[in-house]
Design a protein around this nucleic acid. Structure first.
Length: 371
DNA sequence: TATTGCGCACTTC
DNA sequence: GAAGTGCGCAATA
């Protein structure tokens, strides 16, 4: 996916939307061609790529196909709608492994990035205008007769989710779910659905979310708890995440973390959690070695991490800004607070509870290696 | 002729 | 009632 096309297409979608015109394939291609001289077919193929990486959402609205800039869609109550209709889908960060899920990073779009978003992609099984998108349609076929709009995964079943994570695919219930039910409309990440865990009978699949839950609890909502529970080191929250498989391992369970937040875990539960983390097999351990080092995180890993700790929307900002592990560790407070165009509250939490902690952790690790 | 702007109706919550 | 969406038409380039 070439960046200009991303910007062109998203810009066209935004432009069409601003003038209350349906951003359909025809209009998008026409606008891109007119503005930038891009070939129609190329625009179309690039658009499909954007759809696959969830930068663009393909939806069926009022019986016709529309495209949405993922960065600007599904705010507020639409999120609720999305959640309601959703069935099974990978975690937010899993959906898009492209270099950006939000689209262009130019000023115009950056302004819009203040808007929170919830990424979904929509497809309509009835679409017949795009023959070569049949695979996507098959993947996401869903009737929209009742709601008028459908939001479902666009990622085709034979186009594996662009998840760079070495650990997420195998044990992630979301992926299993995706395979099992590729036709499901997108909805909340499956990890918040109890049935998702039941599908995976392994111990780790049951334990992992709990650990993540605890991690999210400590790291974000109640950073002080970590001191009183068992982790005097402020670095612990993130280390706990890492120890449990890094951003990949936690990504599918972020909301569970929030859910657990409401019900503090007992000591026994924590022990169970720890045991669960220890039960990971050696292969996973090897994989985790790679992802435990934030320096090795890709952009998707970073986004996945922040999704996992309860900042799915802000994670997209990181993705948009193409913040990989190295960049993350170089970020300063002002970068997080202002450079990502995310709200101040989450930004502060992200910086204080995560970025700073990761940086400190990395610094300590470096010190240890060189001492 | 193509593009843009926008009133208004529709849909969902 | 609020918010998102886009049809359809008029204005404009």
């Amino acid at each position: 996916m070439s960046k200009p096309y991303r910007e062109w297409i998203l810009g066209s979608i935004d432009s069409l939307r601003s003038r209350k015109a349906r951003p359909d394939l025809d209009r998008i291609c026409r606008m891109v061609k007119r503005r930038y001289g891009s070939d129609w077919d190329r625009t179309r193929s690039e658009l499909e790529k954007l759809i696959e990486e969830q930068t663009v959402l393909k939806v069926n609205y009022k019986g016709s196909v529309s495209y949405r800039n993922a960065a600007k869609v599904l705010r507020g109550r639409r999120k609720t709608e999305q959640s309601k209709c959703a069935v099974k889908q990978p975690s937010l960060a899993d959906w898009s492994a492209g270099d950006s899920a939000l689209g262009p990073v130019d000023e115009d779009h950056m302004e819009d990035m203040e808007d929170e978003m919830s990424m979904t992609t929509g497809m309509d099984s009835s679409m017949d205008e795009e023959g070569d998108e049949s695979s996507l349609d098959a993947m996401c076929a869903q009737s929209t007769a009742d709601s008028g709009i459908s939001m479902s995964p666009v990622t085709s079943s034979n186009t594996s989710l662009p998840v760079p994570s070495p650990t997420s695919s195998k044990n992630s219930p979301t992926h299993d779910a995706l395979r099992q039910d590729p036709d499901s409309a997108y909805t909340l990440p499956e990890h918040i659905q109890p049935a998702a865990q039941q599908d995976t009978g392994s111990v780790e699949s049951l334990q992992e979310p709990a650990a993540i839950c605890l991690t999210a609890l400590k790291a974000e909502e109640e950073p002080r708890v970590e001191e009183s529970v068992a982790t005097p080191d402020p670095v612990t929250p993130d280390e706990a995440v890492m120890a449990d498989g890094g951003p990949h391992a936690v990504s599918d369970h972020a909301e569970e973390g929030e859910m657990c937040n409401k019900e503090p875990k007992s000591t026994t539960e924590e022990e169970t959690i720890n045991n669960g983390a220890m039960m990971k097999n050696e292969n996973d351990a090897v994989k985790e070695e790679v992802v435990q080092d934030p320096l090795l995180w890709s952009v998707a890993d970073v986004a996945r991490y922040f999704t996992s700790v309860g900042f799915p929307e802000q994670a997209l900002a990181f993705r948009t800004q193409e913040i990989d592990g190295k960049s993350l560790l170089l970020m300063q407070r002002s970068d997080v607070l202002t450079g990502l165009s995310i709200r101040l509250g989450p930004a502060l939490k992200i910086y204080e509870n995560h970025v700073k902690v990761l940086q400190r952790s990395q610094f300590q690790e470096d010190s240890r290696l060189f001492s």
